[in-house]
Design a protein around this nucleic acid. Structure first.
Length: 427
RNA sequence: GUGGCUGUGGUGAAGCGGUUAACACAAACGACUGUGACUCGUUCAUCCGUGGGUUCGAAUCCCAUCAGCCACCCCA
């Protein structure tokens, strides 16, 4: 019996990898325009780090972590998200000393023990960014604008930005209490889950999908009406920043985030195309997290996007690359020469394919077509004897005889041959 | 952790108790002047997720099990 992979841990096969790389490369390119630097941190951290940052009572920490005891008896966990590790590293290496503002991005696998479904896997991948050291709402607007820029760059215009403010430790408790009172009078109308949430996390009732809860909470007090002056100003200046940047958004006062560390600005990039998984990217401000993890008292803001979800949105877009040249040959001597030529050309940076087995010319041509080779070089005994070869442009079918010389052939393959040339697009 | 749906070749699938397990795509080879795309031909599941059971006989019925998918919870 063959051994299969683990549930929720997926292979990313060659065809898909191209799409993944396109996403990753686009992220790097866009984020670096905005001055972000990549940071790479381990996938394994002390369990305590996540318990303290994400929140002890959250589902992630309570039941979704891949935690175990290593051989030295330490409690360790496969990271369920990226922020905690990045902030830990930021603090540990005192990055704020060298530069009071840190703009970082990361990408890599995260792990959560959940039941897999569309757009959700046990090993999944996130690309995220974190900014530490700026409390001005200009950075909120900047981060959101960059996120939207990234999606626009991928040609994904359907996901739209929703923002909200959760207030801070000053104003949130008051609002929470008020909301709880409001819900108290309508407990009968709420679903079972919301009755439970009433105690644990009343804010959650606001974005419940159940019709009854939607109705019951229709006239619920809004967080935005209960922000303290500081948070209120932060929110309106964030909005002004978005408008200045020309970044479209909508306000969703019912949006709630699952991690405990969020304060003030929170946001999601939502899509209607991924079934139950509507959030493609999400994040928010975490003004107390760095200090709570033992670092300096610095504010922070960040987001993470689910790469699988982004890739799903990209659909069947083909990112395949076409070889520059396929070399077909006829006869043993020509076969040897074809191989020599292929090696020379590859050394010159030309992507070349050939058929190693020496099948029929027809079969080789078919293969050249399948690869989508831009040109095919045909080398037979008689051409070889004259030091020549036939080169055929596959898209047009035009062919001509050329001298059998790597430098010469390399020149002939150079761009400028018109339609179907993909080199420019790949720059 | 809970619920629903589905399991036939590389893929999409027909089949509904007795068939050589259809068809299409993909793939390989070949025909059409040593040259691809169109056309044509040939090949490609001794087997229907796995294990039991019912039956003269099962891919087709029953049970178990495993896997996948989707949804809830929660989240990217």
């Amino acid at each position: 019996m063959a051994i299969n992979g683990i549930k929720g841990f997926n292979d990313i096969l060659p065809g898909e990898v191209r799409k993944w790389r396109h996403v990753e490369e686009t992220a790097r390119r866009v984020f670096e325009i905005y001055g972000f630097c990549e940071i790479r941190v381990p996938v394994l951290e002390k369990t305590e780090l996540f318990a303290r940052s994400i929140g002890d009572a959250t589902d992630i920490v309570e039941k979704e972590m891949y935690s175990f005891t290593d051989k030295g008896g330490n409690g360790v966990t496969l990271r369920p998200e990226g922020t905690a590790g990045v902030i830990r590293s930021f603090i540990e290496h005192k990055l704020h000393v060298a530069d009071p503002v840190a703009k970082l991005y990361y990408l890599g696998p995260m792990f959560r023990y959940e039941r897999p479904q569309k757009g959700r896997y046990r090993q999944f991948h996130q690309i995220g960014v974190e900014v530490a050291g700026v409390s001005d709402p200009k950075i909120d607007a900047q981060v959101l604008t960059m996120l939207c820029h990234f999606f626009a760059e991928l040609g994904l215009t359907e996901p739209h930005l929703q923002i909200n403010s959760l207030g801070c430790h000053e104003c949130r408790p008051g609002y929470r209490e008020k909301l709880q009172k409001f819900l108290h009078d309508r407990l009968d109308a709420l679903c079972d889950d919301c009755r439970r949430r009433y105690v644990t996390n009343p804010l959650r009732a606001l974005d419940c999908k159940a019709a009854g809860c939607r109705e019951a909470t229709a006239s619920a007090p809004s967080v935005l009406d209960h922000l303290c002056p500081g948070c209120d100003e932060h929110f309106s200046r964030t909005r002004a920043g978005l408008e200045a940047a020309g970044t479209p958004y909508e306000i969703n006062p019912r949006m709630v985030r699952g991690l405990d560390y969020y304060t003030r600005t929170t946001f999601e990039l939502v899509t209607g195309l991924l079934g139950a998984q509507s959030a493609v990217a999400a994040g928010g401000r975490y003004d107390r997290l760095i200090e709570e993890l033992g670092g300096p008292s610095l504010p922070g803001i960040g987001f993470a996007m689910g790469v699988e979800r982004v890739v799903l949105l990209l659909g069947d877009t083909d990112f395949g690359v076409r070889p520059d040249l396929f070399i077909a040959f006829h006869g043993d001597a020509a076969g040897n020469e074809a191989f020599r030529l292929m090696c020379r050309l590859q050394r010159l940076g030309v992507s070349v394919e050939m058929d190693y087995e020496g099948k029929s010319l027809k079969s080789q041509m078919r293969r050249a077509d399948k690869f989508g080779a831009r040109h095919t070089l045909i080398l037979g005994e008689d051409e070889l004897a004259r030091g020549m070869a036939v080169i055929k442009e596959m898209d047009s079918g035009v062919q001509r005889e050329v001298a059998l010389d790597p430098e010469n052939i390399n020149m002939l393959l150079a761009p400028g041959s018109g339609a179907g040339d993909m080199r420019k697009e790949q720059q």
